[in-house]
């Protein structure tokens, strides 16, 4: 296994609020799941946390709005925002097209790896979706 291959070393977890969190080394990348974008419908507005903001797990940290309604996005883990994806702010429809790939929302540094490990893996998230 190549140590430089991100896909080989990345691990993804999911929250009950329908966020995905991808861990690569010490950085966690956060977005909303394909299930979430589908449930929201066509997005027309995304607001992301500012770089440098300290987030507490569970606090409102972003907003997504469809034509009809606004929804909050909650921080799945505590940490410091180290990057925000301006592409989804400029083009909210990108979230509808590529929720779990290109349309990441923000990156967190300093998040607790143990808290990350406690989130759902894909199989657990799929099982959770089946209960909704």
């Amino acid at each position: 296994m190549s140590a430089t291959s991100e896909s080989a070393t990345a691990e993804t977890r999911y929250s009950r609020d329908h966020e995905w969190i991808r861990r690569e080394g010490g950085t966690m990348t956060v977005g909303i799941t394909d299930h979430a974008q589908s449930a929201l419908g066509d997005l027309v507005f995304v607001e992301l946390p500012e770089v440098g903001r300290e987030l507490e797990a569970g606090e409102t940290c972003a907003v997504v709005e469809s034509v009809k309604a606004a929804s909050d996005v909650y921080a799945p883990l505590s940490g410091t925002v180290s990057a925000a994806n301006d592409a989804v702010v400029q083009e909210p429809a990108l979230v509808n097209r590529a929720a779990e790939t290109e349309a990441w929302f923000f990156r967190l540094s300093g998040a607790d790896p143990e808290a990350f490990a406690e989130l759902m893996d894909r199989a657990a998230y799929d099982a959770f979706l089946a209960t909704l």
Binding site: G41, D42, V44, S66, V67, K68
Partner: peptide, 21 residues
Amino acid sequence: RMVPFAGYAMPVQYQGVLAEH
């Protein structure tokens, strides 16, 4: 996608609000 509205199950969207609009 059906939603409750005024006591009825009503379609809120078919393919998507933007395309329908």
